[in-house]
């Protein structure tokens, strides 16, 4: 991923900052600048999510792209945040620990590297809440 493409979304990726449409109250993460329900009449503001959520579905990725190859196997999941929106994220847990309905919370982690001397990308992962 290009440096500018990554850098542009650093606040959102590092801090789980998405958006909210204050017209209808709906939350968005990943952030959206247009509310699909209210469209142009929706007023969009930033919103920091509290990072608590539930695993909706998951897999264990065992064969990955070059960027992620040295981190396989890893648990990948769709997490529903308590505020409503869903996102795709890794769960820092053992493959056999992953379960649908598992409670998780967000942590700041290294996500991937662009080769040996390339940019290291950080962002949000989730860990089981116990």
């Amino acid at each position: 991923m290009s440096v500018s493409r990554f850098w542009r979304k650093i606040p959102q990726r590092y801090n789980l900052i998405g958006t909210q449409c204050t017209t209808c109250g709906r939350y968005f993460y990943p952030p959206r600048s247009l509310c699909p329900d209210c469209r142009r009449s929706g007023k969009i503001v930033d919103h920091k999510f509290n990072g608590e959520g539930t695993v909706v579905t998951y897999t264990v990725v065992r064969s990955a792209s070059d960027q992620f190859e040295n981190t396989t196997p890893y648990v990948l999941a769709i997490v529903e945040l308590d505020e409503g929106p869903r996102l795709t994220s890794q769960i820092a847990c053992l493959p056999e620990e992953a379960k649908i309905g598992m409670r998780v919370h967000s942590v700041f982690r290294r996500i991937a590297a662009d080769g040996e001397s390339g940019v290291i990308h950080y962002g949000t992962k989730f860990v089981p809440t116990e």
Partner: peptide, 13 residues
């Protein structure tokens, strides 16, 4: 960005 491969997405389905 999160490490979702194409098979990984269908696996979650």
């Amino acid at each position: 960005f999160a490490g979702a491969t194409f098979p990984g997405l269908y696996a979650m389905i």
